[in-house]
Write a protein that binds this DNA or RNA. Structure first.
Lengths: 342, 342
DNA sequence: CTGTTAGCGCTTTCAG
DNA sequence: CTGAAAGCGCTAACAG
């Protein structure tokens, strides 16, 4: 009785075994040599490397994921791609993760907690090696989903409390809001409105910063708050600005929570022949593309999103290697950018 | 000599075998029932489904990819995330692919053929189930890389020649460029410049459309072309506009290849006190966010990128299922949007 | 229509 | 420091 003829599904692909045979070592040694895991004789490593290069060997991610229960994917959750802020963030993340052999899986939550939870669950099935999420505030269920996943996670664009046991790279949104408010006050503005859309957690923190400073100056009034849960956009900024000047002509400055709103306001001002900053000052947030080209150029706060994306990725890379991270909370600060609109 | 005791690495995960045991069928039947592949007795399907649901079974993508040599990933290659056009495209792609169980792997080429080839090679290692790329024109090496990959591919935002054997969903960039040019001529403009940045293939096709119409009208002159290979941006649009009016005051209209350039030009015009369209008309392309808010509102061409993303994904879905696609080339057209700037 | 068997290509576990 | 054996969880191939 001879054994049934082997029916191979030969893929034509160069496998670890091929390399092992070529280098005359066992497959596991190839695996270890190539991954740099455990100590392997330098001479063997060189031989294996040479053979792998010669044969054009490339590890199969699926096989690797199956055997190790860990993929080369990093799930990245951001609220919105149409906010240029997150495009810069994503670009930096990709630029850092790719050379290290990781693939970013981008999930867009549309600022929706439920959608974020769904995306998270989906991504977790793919056994990502790491997780990059935007912000700290989220429902307890989602927080524990992340904690239970057993996957390292770094939070971006905000700072976790030091005792939360979370990793985060970002800046204080409240401080940034406060800084711009102080700038407006320092420039002599007294009735400083705060106009916001979307109302996501970070926006609300900026609102807190504004409130704090205005209250400290004895200038706070609830009627100075213009909050709109609709998605932020240039068009909405124009409409909100028209509301403000129509309903409260005494307001002499508007601090918009995002540059797109402020840009829309600036354009509306041009349309209505309102002089900025003489009639009214306008400030934005994030220093998005085009803000420096507005007429007048928009005073804003530059947020270090590219730096955040890069630093968060570097931190995640360390965590994925199982390394200890000295500073789990990294504050990258912000920069007030005074231009002509204030 | 007894065999070594089985050392299970029990992952705690519910596997296909668990479901098979619970439903009292063989694993392969579970596999087939759940995938709807091949005919399986409806009664068995129901039993398997019930067991799977009860146990909370979720297939492991890595195991599936390894065994079938096909993942649930779709590689999506776009030139740039900072062009809002592609954000809309990506959003539509994700919205179509995700419910069908596919994950979009986004690769950004930065309008670079080499980077595109590198990304393609990387993605192909992950054995994507499908491929979505931007545009038709690319080096022969990259084209054959795609052809050799044995993975269905749909091209977006441009139309392949009918006999190329390629799948594409988009619109004629040249026709769109021509249409805007005719509009400018119809509005009485005679010295119509074409200003472009980036100079990617689709931009150059729009240039061709403009050339054709201007030549037909006997108005073509090489000095009317303002081509700049730098990345497109609002700031660059402003600078290019200043060049045009500084060096060729006789030009009475500028057709920008993208809205961000045109927006920058419009802002520069406000800055310089140039009246648009009285002194000079300005036209854009793509109808990006904010174009309708400019002063005056920007005349542009609306490109159906969301529709393209959705239709291309639907076509790819069919191809991935191995279905025959009736119309491999789908022209979704474009729409001239006359506003105040012309 | 259902099952058996043999892998996919890699890494883990346990020894040496 | 190196290796042998045993899967990871699933599907392709080949029967029946």
């Amino acid at each position: 009785m001879t054994a049934a003829p082997p029916r191979r599904r030969a893929s034509g692909r160069v496998t670890l075994d091929d390399v092992a045979r070529a280098a005359d070592v066992s497959p596991i040694t190839v695996s270890r040599a190539l991954r740099g895991e455990r100590a392997v004789d330098p001479a063997l490593v060189a031989r294996v490397r040479e053979a792998a290069d010669r044969l054009g060997y490339v590890p199969d991610p699926a096989a690797r994921a199956l055997a190790s229960r860990r993929s080369t994917h990093v799930a990245v959750l951001i609220p919105m791609l149409s906010n240029a802020l997150f495009v810069d963030l994503i670009e930096a993340v990709q630029r850092t993760l790719r050379p290290a052999g990781y693939q970013a899986l981008i999930g867009v939550t549309h600022y929706d907690d439920t959608e974020e939870a769904v995306l998270l669950r989906e991504q977790l099935l793919h056994r990502p090696a790491g997780l990059l999420v935007t912000g700290i505030d989220r429902p307890a269920a989602t927080r524990s989903l992340i904690a239970q996943a057993g996957v390292p996670c770094v939070h971006m664009m905000d700072l976790a409390p030091a005792d939360a046991g979370l990793y985060s790279v970002g800046m204080s949104q409240a401080e940034a809001g406060a800084a711009m408010t102080r700038h407006l006050l320092a420039r002599g503005h007294r009735r400083v409105a705060f106009a916001a859309a979307q109302l996501d957690p970070r926006t609300l923190q900026r609102l807190q910063g504004w409130r704090r400073e205005l209250t400290a100056a004895g200038l706070y009034e609830p009627t100075l708050e213009w909050l709109n849960p609709a998605p932020s956009s240039i068009a909405l900024g124009g409409r909100m600005f028209e509301q403000v000047i129509g309903q409260r002509p005494s307001i002499d400055a508007v601090f918009f929570c995002n540059d797109d709103l402020a840009q829309g306001a600036l354009l509306a001002a041009v349309r209505h022949g309102i002089r900025v900053p003489d009639d009214i000052a306008i400030a934005g947030f994030n220093d998005l593309t085009g803000s420096d080209q507005m007429v007048p150029p928009l005073t804003t706060v530059r947020t270090p999103r590219a730096e955040v994306g890069a630093a968060a990725s570097v931190m995640l890379l360390a965590l994925m290697r199982g390394e200890h991270v000295e500073r789990p909370v990294v504050d990258l600060g912000f920069e007030l950018v005074p231009r002509g609109s204030v």
